[in-house]
Design a protein around this nucleic acid. Structure first.
Lengths: 170, 170
DNA sequence: CTGACTGCAAACCCTTTGCATCATC
DNA sequence: GATGATGCAAAGGGTTTGCAGTCAG
């Protein structure tokens, strides 16, 4: 009582992923390709469930547990980055964006909408680098990445709360 | 089958908390005092379970659910701040430290040790303020706070991984 | 006294794990 | 073929919620 869902074959692609996988003596499989692909072509932060839903449309045989397992793997390999915006669930994004075009976030406390931005000033860029090296030396940490988030209320949610109470003094 | 644990009476204290509670037409109770107190006298980031354990030593009648409920309340009131360091559980810290002596964090990816620091340079302080106002205007956000975290490996965990493999090239 | 608050236990939700089966190498 | 990877279902761990009893105002 197990093969209600036939497993599907891998299709050949995803050069980038393959290197990491093969290096570690692991196998290249369809689910791994799909998860990586979905994240690469996504423009925002996706939850495991999001990724699962997208994959499911075309490949209903893939299971959620595998998506989770794959995300752990891709995170360890540095191909994706995991974020936690306080929703009670993790969100993932392709790591390229993270290195080549590093970004920070603006997060709505109400609806958890996330806006990412990477148009830093030169001052900003330099400062983070400097702070990183100072901290690294001072505390003996090997710093791998940093997270900068601004939390607040997005325009939509601000409107909503205005509509609810005209005498706003909270 | 309910009163195995007698509830305890409130003791008078915590001026600061009381204001917020009373303002909202809520009631001042012992659990609320205790949670606030524990967080105020703590020097690090505590999980709900941590807080529960500490309270439990002296007041075994208080329940974990109440601690959670209180933390939601205190967070909403701005008395504590909730952080998520990726452990899969939230951690809390008294908000005073957050405003008066705002701090950022250095987090170990392995053991989740958290070092907080607040010895910012003047450059740093100014930059964050500037970025905040720029973003706020550009995206229409009402920014309430920011989170800056540097993730890496702490000295202890670095030692450990060296011991495991003498030929370290990871 | 009344309704807010609590403790308890059960429910929830996200994530991980065990196991038999399947497919990559 | 051998063994790593998968799908499913069940377990785990943190957090929330329903409910009846309790206490602050």
């Amino acid at each position: 009582m197990s093969n209600s869902r036939p497993r599907q074959r891998m299709k050949p692609c995803c050069m980038e992923l393959e290197g990491g996988i093969r290096n570690r003596g692991l196998r290249m499989t369809l689910p791994r390709q799909l998860v990586a692909q979905v994240l690469e072509s996504a423009d925002g932060y996706l939850s495991a469930e999001d990724i699962y839903s997208i994959i499911r449309e075309e490949y209903p045989a893939i299971g959620l547990a595998t998506v989770y397992r794959t995300l752990v793997l891709l995170d360890e390999m540095g191909i994706v980055n995991r974020y936690n915006f306080g929703e009670g669930r993790a969100r993932y994004i392709a790591a390229e964006d993270q290195t080549a075009e590093h970004h920070h976030q603006l997060i709505c406390e109400r609806c958890y909408k996330v806006i990412k931005y990477s148009d830093f000033s030169e001052d900003e860029r330099e400062l983070y680098k400097k702070v990183e090296s100072v901290l690294s030396e001072k505390h003996g940490f090997e710093i791998k990445r940093h997270i900068v988030q601004f939390h607040g209320i997005c325009p939509d949610c601000r409107k909503e709360s205005q509509n609810e109470s005209s005498n706003s003094d909270v």
